[in-house]
Design a binder for these strands. Structure first.
Lengths: 208, 208
DNA sequence: CGATTAATATATCGATCGCTATTAAACGCT
DNA sequence: AGCGTTTAATAGCGATCGATATATTAATCG
């Protein structure tokens, strides 16, 4: 499937992935309600009908753009969670990776998921629900890593991994607000070190 | 000044404080961009000209409504910070008070300041800046309490109170997101206990 | 009772919102 | 070249945005 069959009709001017990149960046910076179709079409260099033909609706575009960007942004930290690192090391990597990713000089501030569509107009409630689900999924992934830590002896049996995961989830979400308010990477990493001091389990490397 | 002189002209139908309460509640639930003038006038039971005559503009109303609500919402925790409690006790009260205040069954979810106008349309940038300033002021108040803690021997000399205050500020902001996502008071308080475990100083009461 | 004063409601303003019916343009195929 | 197919651009849909000019209503004062 390396040779795509020649397509009939007028060719597309906008690459789909480029469009998603542009959209993700705008949504990332200004949020769902703060980004208009006019903003999106202007940044993509297309007209509204092209955008709708390609992406369906503003909601669909938002969802697809987030999938597109989150995959890229969070891949490394999710891999770390599921790697052979000890739970503490994985968590440390995760938090430092977030701190870096939400305060890059050439990208919008903050996390594209943590601080998106928290409060919104009543008619956008479905979008808010989907963002809640994304945040809950992120916390669940952390929690599952902590549960594994119990089975591996990194955390004491009986540890409230649900609360511990939600604590670090809340911390990440709060870091995102601080990043939006202008915090640099260095400053955020100092917060990460403090957050890690709340870790209740072993801090050694796996296998010594 | 107990006897207001009889005022000329048609009397106001909307009490100013009631209007601010109504506005604060709407802004609290749906945010600045998610709350329209039509929403506000409908909830207040007035027409747009009355609203503009009383409050000036949407931005001014937002600012005044926030002042009005924040004064009421944060008074107890600010008093605790400046009381005779030990730094740890004051911080503990502060965090538990936030946890309770952002998850009351009959009020909108989350903190009216922590998670407001984080991402917004370019034309609302001034509003976002003012919210950043409010969040920074809250962190500064915590930091000043921590500085006092050093002078009182509750924290080791050389403690990075700036980072410590920003850590707890971020935690509060993250708790606000969790509250918006549906977390109940009980659940939030478990997160508070974990956050408090990162406290690097004395946990005794003052004077013993 | 007018006259004065102030707050109200009616009816919009121009701009922008998300979205689309219609028409024009650019391709492969015959 | 002519045709069918696919996408693009023009123009504009009804609704809503924040904000106002105008006219009306309700109070006190003389």
């Amino acid at each position: 499937m390396v040779e795509p069959p020649k397509k009939r009709g007028r060719p597309r001017t906008l690459d789909r992935n480029v469009g998603l990149d542009v959209a993700a960046r705008l949504f990332w910076e200004h949020g769902y309600e703060g980004t208009s179709i006019a903003d999106l079409t202007a940044a993509m260099g297309v007209t509204p009908p092209s955008l709708y033909a390609t992406f369906g609706s503003k909601q669909e575009l938002y969802c697809k753009a987030l999938d597109h960007a989150v995959e890229r942004e969070s891949k490394a930290r999710m891999d770390a969670l599921n790697s052979g690192l000890s739970a503490y090391e994985a968590l440390s990597f995760y938090l430092h990776d977030v701190a870096t990713g939400i305060s890059r000089p050439d990208d919008p501030r903050g996390c594209i998921v943590s601080t998106a569509v928290v409060q919104c107009a009543a008619e956008n409630e479905p979008v808010a629900k989907s963002m809640t689900a994304r945040r809950e999924a992120a916390i669940k992934a952390i929690r599952e890593r902590f549960d594994r830590a119990i089975s591996e002896g990194d955390l004491a049996v009986g540890t409230d991994t649900e609360s511990l995961a939600r604590f670090y989830g809340a911390f990440v979400q709060g870091m995102s607000v601080q990043a939006c308010d202008g915090a640099c990477t260095q400053r955020l990493k100092r917060l990460v070190d403090i957050a890690l001091s709340a870790w209740p389990g072993k801090r050694s490397k796996n296998g010594r």
